[in-house]
Design a protein around this nucleic acid. Structure first.
Lengths: 263, 263
DNA sequence: GTGCACCCTGACCTAAGGTCAAGGTCAACC
DNA sequence: GGTTGACCTTGACCTTAGGTCAGGGTGCAC
């Protein structure tokens, strides 16, 4: 007569909501069960079993559209599908664990945005050059931008700069460039520094943050390396330094700065 | 002039799609950046930093609507929010691990639907009574249905049945009931068995799968315990057994079967 | 006989994007 | 200097797995 449980009990048993069960009906995952005299759905044990299987697969992340075929497959295919679902679930778990690690790095500042090797080098240089924490932040953000700009050439560029800093003359120029951040924009020393930097870069073109083999749009990249370090408006001296540097480069060897191939 | 990276590079840097970045704009998570001469968006380092922070939080499962406030909060609140997000992420990881275990149980059959204690008992009884694998399946599905029907009283009911089976007379009746599954529906022994079962149940009402304190709708519950075991249509003898059992109960003590309180 | 919990259908809403269309731009190669 | 292919623009609609609301019918306990 009135055997079978109502949709509410079936849903509670499977740990889903009533709406979810009706949703499964709409998608053909469970056949509509018999109705009682008042039109209520009445679920039997087979329905409940199927409902729990559906819920288990759905909770494991299987899209509803795939669940029907999996449950209707023969035992061998069913077992194989379960193995596959388990693998995908493991992947998702590993993924979430990796994201938790990433979150921890985010809590520690923007260090998450650069490779560990680069961060270590930056720390060493900062200690050597006497950077303030703000300087370190600015340099880090500049590196982030360069990496966004030329992702393919970034690792290579870092290596070249590391080798470049082994040259005490370049190290000294960079040290001076950072001090220039605090100069007045019309400080006469800016001109000298720009020329010296340009001379050095002309002699060592590998120090420009331009991926080898790509010579166009070079000036934009250089702008970034020199001053688009997130604080450029606050350091007017650097804006002028960049202008003079570019002028020197253009005068001496515009094949690099002109924005077209060297040919 | 043309400094800043395009949306494609920004997206690639942060590990999201172009569409996702525009989605974040629409939701106010990142301000629309400056446009260049052709109307292209140009992103600076601050935008990139923010984009990666957003992506990290979103990947950790934080709803987009919550990310803006988190990022705009002061450092203390930001740190607190990160701790909270990390906790929620841990919960999700634990949840997925639990679901993977559940999946493994699903692979092992429907055993996932019943508590381990009940499964162990069922296995013991099956061995004792000489159940075929099909019998075990049928019994298991019957238990699943009872659990769906009266979830609150299920554990208690199992305990009562366990104690009931210590009585050799009841054990013998149940053994006979399972043999009756193979009888013809008009077998005269069914009447005797029904009467004997009813007598025993009248003497031991705790064996009925009815939660203590709830006396109404009892007959539906009894139907379940006796025959709605997923194979009821295939076992016509049980249908008749149930009818005769109910008649005996009604004749002898309809206060239990009548579907209304004993008062 | 009244209240409350439960059931019915159907229409619309949600998050976090994906897809498609129709067109404008940029750098490279011949 | 013309074409090719990759990249950019907006806007409209689609997707998954349900949730919410409206408007109404049932079942049962006091």
């Amino acid at each position: 007569m009135t055997d079978g449980v109502t949709i509410g009990r079936a849903a509670a048993f499977a740990g889903v909501t009533v709406k979810t069960v009706r949703h499964y009906h709409k998608h053909g995952l469970i056949d509509e069960p018999r109705r009682d005299g008042s039109g209520y759905r009445r679920y039997g044990s087979a329905d409940l079993l199927r409902l729990v299987r559906i819920r288990t697969l759905a909770a494991a992340g299987v899209p509803l559209a795939e669940i029907g075929p999996i449950l209707d497959a023969d035992p061998d295919r069913f077992a194989a599908a379960l193995v596959d679902v388990g693998r995908r679930l493991d992947d998702r778990i590993d993924d979430l664990i990796a994201r938790r690690d990433m979150l921890q790095r985010l809590a520690g500042g923007d260090r998450a945005l650069l490779p560990d090797r680069v961060l270590a080098k930056l720390d060493r240089v900062a200690a050597e050059f006497g950077f303030t924490p703000d300087d370190v932040t600015m340099a880090r953000e500049g590196l982030v931008l360069i990496r966004a700009l030329v992702p393919e050439g970034f690792d290579d560029y870092i290596s070249r700069v590391e080798r470049g800093l082994d040259d005490p003359r370049y190290a000294s120029l960079i040290r001076r460039m950072w001090r220039a951040a605090e100069w007045e924009p019309d400080d006469p020393r800016i001109g000298e520094l720009a020329t010296a930097l340009a001379d050095h870069c002309l002699a060592h073109p590998e120090l420009l943050p331009v991926p080898a083999g790509l010579r166009a749009r070079t000036d934009a990249a250089i702008r970034y390396s020199l001053l688009s370090q997130h604080g450029q408006e606050q350091k007017p001296a650097w804006t002028r330094l960049a202008a003079l540097f570019e002028a020197s480069m253009r005068a001496a060897g515009n094949d690099i700065l002109a924005g077209r191939p060297v040919s």
